[in-house]
Design a protein around this nucleic acid. Structure first.
Lengths: 226, 226
DNA sequence: CGTACCGTTGAGGTGAGTCAAAGTAAGTGG
DNA sequence: CCACTTACTTTGACTCACCTCAACGGTACG
């Protein structure tokens, strides 16, 4: 959103309107930013922190769909579909968010056709559903699906430590990892143990250290995007 | 697409342009309309027949994503995302399709802002990814997931036979049903046998007869949408 | 009447779920 | 700073739904 405003050559008047209309908010870990079946009020933009989009299904089964991080937007599917949210957004860490009301968004889109194209593109490129399906690939061991998750999370914030090992930040509880893979926390613990024993990846707190990314991704037929 | 043109109060000139630019085509069973990793050429609209959108993953694993039927559009994700297709479209039956080239679509969207809204809405409401996830719900027996599929397909073309039994048209091979549920054809055969033995649903050819829809959907915690 | 594909059935193996219990970390309050 | 509580993680033993493989029955079509 912010990046668009900068690129768009938007009128100063409208930039001011945006500044005035948007609402910034802080959420603590575990807080819900919005809940499924609620009607959408607008667009959410994450300034800092991480949020888990998840779906609570029949019998309380929680299905993790996507981790939303800093500078990403969420809630647009509901905004443009004029449907209630299909997912619940829950803060994984302390989060600073920025909320753009529906009315504002609609008048902006009417004024700036390029903004419509921006959102058409954003909706079409949304990797969320595709990732969610990949993470639940059938006949694929939990261990491999866990590697898929690491691969997806690596794209968010690639970084190296002092030993030039890959470090992936994973702001998720075992329970949430499990909900994203369609598995149980116990199975995640076992897969993590295996990866450690094989010297492929070490989980410590919310960080995963990978000495040889090649080796990790090779196992899952993925390319090291680095 | 067609429905939009009718509603939109589009200029006669443009309607004529559309008629002239679009390409109608006939495909036989098994033919591919487009393949994943190809760049998109435009928008496809199905006039008749059924198409399976599927993804061919690592090691040739075929994952069925969505059945596209008459009057539905496909290919828009790739069109607006300016990315290659992520799915392959394969004709399940003989199909009449209509193809609208990318250039045409883009100039139309620029001319008619309401068309942008139409597609924003279509993209946001696309049930495909959600359905695909539901059909692979973890810890859910194949039998239940098969009922989910029947429920989804019923929404497409609800009909009753002379005995007032619900008849659901399912233009899919066992193999394709399996690919949508993340299961194996053998497991589908077994689930079908069970449903028949329990007097809940009878599969014959490409039609499924359901004497008491209530009973079927109750088992899966679904509402009879009829 | 063969060839080819699809569908069904049976037997056997296994990855991951379930349950239960112990271990660890993170707060909370005196 | 230390008990105490609460929540998260790990481990082990057991079980089962579904995959795998292999064989057989149907149906369509040249």
């Amino acid at each position: 959103m912010h990046e668009y405003i900068c690129e768009s050559g938007m009128e100063a008047l409208d930039v001011e309107l945006i500044e005035k209309s948007r609402v910034t908010q802080i959420y603590g870990r575990g807080d819900k930013i919005f809940c499924q079946d609620e009607m959408s009020g607008g667009l959410y933009c994450i300034r800092s922190g991480s949020i888990l989009l998840c779906h609570i299904g029949a019998m309380g089964l929680k299905t993790g769909l996507r981790v939303v991080g800093a500078c990403e937007i969420m809630g647009y599917r509901s905004l443009f579909g004029e449907d209630p949210h299909v997912a619940t957004a829950q803060a994984l860490t302390t989060c600073h968010t920025c909320f753009y009301p529906k009315k504002l968004m609609q008048s902006l889109i009417d004024t700036y056709p390029k903004l419509a194209h921006y959102f058409l593109r954003a909706l079409a490129r949304d990797r969320g559903p595709r990732d969610a399906l990949l993470l639940r690939a059938p006949y694929t061991p939990v261990r491999t699906r866990l590697i898929y998750l690491l691969h997806i999370m690596q794209d968010h914030n690639p970084s190296r430590n002092s030993n030039r090992e890959l470090v992936i930040h994973l702001p998720l509880l075992r329970r949430d990892i499990a909900s994203m893979l369609g598995a149980r926390p116990e199975s995640i613990a076992r897969a993590i143990k295996e990866l450690k024993q094989d010297g492929i990846a070490v989980f410590r707190g919310h960080n995963v250290t990978v000495p040889e990314p090649e080796k990790l991704y090779q196992e899952a037929n993925l390319e090291a995007s680095d």
